[in-house]
Design a protein around this nucleic acid. Structure first.
Lengths: 239, 239
DNA sequence: GCCTATTTGTTCGTATGTATC
DNA sequence: AGATACATACGAACAAATAGG
């Protein structure tokens, strides 16, 4: 019997299953006994215990000897509204949260086929690539990679470094307003590099947002790929 | 130096890292040599080989002896627009895709605190819980759990079973129009039960959408939690 | 207080899978 | 390919805390 055919251990899958069931409210406020869970998941009791131990470390559960295992009140995630006028710092301020953007790295690159199509520039056109990360209430929540046309926004990097905000940087460059044309969302496992920067477990999940911002004439300004840590942030869309 | 404390094997993490880097386009159309990747990920070459073998089985890579390892063209995902008037079947038809909803199960339940708050009914009020799944082009793409007030929509289950669509079922019950009030998005690992129904790997990722639909007087109609398979569907938001 | 059933916690042993060298 | 170290998984017991009669 192949125990770990897909590189994910059994206790891990039990832990994930439990987490999901708990989120769905299937168990109410307390877990069934370990022996019962073992039968339910078709594993040994030790394996269930390992899963419970992992979830206890995460703060999801609380085991009490002789009484049972109880489900802790859910810790709420930061919500991040997406819509036409999505401005990260403004939105955080509305929730009275302290947020800060930080420029990690920037470089000049040539547009590949995908980037050229998204930004509506020629293949090989000069772009600025900016690696940023965002910290809310002292906790890193997202990392993003943004591409700007280097010809249209030659001073963007200096302006961002100075102001710490894309909105303010663009304003400094004479662009008063912009809007979001499109946001595409998907989910991925975090990359090792992102895990290091966001200071989280290497097996965390991220919500990936691929978005295009345009000026008021519908000309693309930036293509931006943001990885939101799924367990620290929740995207909210309200029409 | 063995750090496998999180239940995910090294080759698996290398595979996930490679998949992400490939998706980002970091490697272009071919992978660096195995020895180089081993150094990059800080693992033994055997471990890299196992990761590459897994990705080859998935169809992401193609290893050619003596030449190198090449990246296959990505298979495109189905896009699902989210917005005010999100109607699944309408949206699929616009992409000229064949879609079908299927009722898996339905039962009468009492509203718990969360459901009562979302649907604006009393705690313990009777609800219909409907488990559905959606198949697009023969491929299952999502599974969802919807809650309706049993007092307000006594015939909803029969109507859905007959029409195969929430929109048409509600119309049959005399509700001509409704809109989405809110969509909250997050990412999770798939639950074993969902993995079975959606006929996918047990370690797949899902985009979870928690949404509230309301009638034209802003009274809640349904609370719905949908799990979209992240590698088969992409959510798109256009203002 | 006492007994019992239930439930979590601990400790053996054994076999298999993973990762490196 | 073989050797080594460690993590995973299972099985069978036993210990310790709790709750109820």
């Amino acid at each position: 019997m192949n125990v770990m055919d897909d590189g994910i251990s059994r206790w891990r899958r039990v832990a994930d299953g439990l987490r999901a069931a708990i989120a769905e409210g299937s168990y109410g406020d307390r877990l069934p006994p370990e022996t019962e869970l073992a039968k339910e998941f078709g594993v040994n009791r030790h394996t269930v215990r390992r899963a419970i131990s992992a979830l206890s470390d995460e703060g999801v559960l609380r085991a009490e000897r002789g009484r049972g295992t109880f489900i802790n009140e859910a810790q709420s995630r930061i919500t991040y509204p997406i819509g036409t006028r999505a401005r990260f710092s403004e939105n955080m301020m509305r929730q009275s949260l302290e947020s800060a953007g930080r420029l990690i790295n920037s470089e000049r690159v040539a547009a590949d086929r995908t980037q050229a199509a998204l930004l509506e520039v020629k293949l090989g056109a000069p772009l600025y690539k900016m690696e940023k990360m965002t910290v809310v209430e002292g906790l890193p929540v997202s990392r993003s990679t943004a591409y700007f046309s280097a010809e249209r926004f030659p001073g963007i990097i200096a302006a961002y470094a100075e102001t710490g905000s894309v909105t303010r940087a663009l304003k400094q460059l004479g662009l008063d307003d912009y809007r979001r044309r499109e946001t595409r969302l998907t989910a991925e496992r975090i990359s090792p590099s992102d895990a290091e920067f966001l200071h989280c477990a290497p097996d965390s999940l991220v919500l990936v947002s691929n978005a295009i911002d345009v000026d008021l004439d519908d000309v693309p300004i930036q293509a931006i790929r943001t990885r939101f840590l799924a367990d620290r942030i929740e995207l909210v869309f309200k029409p």
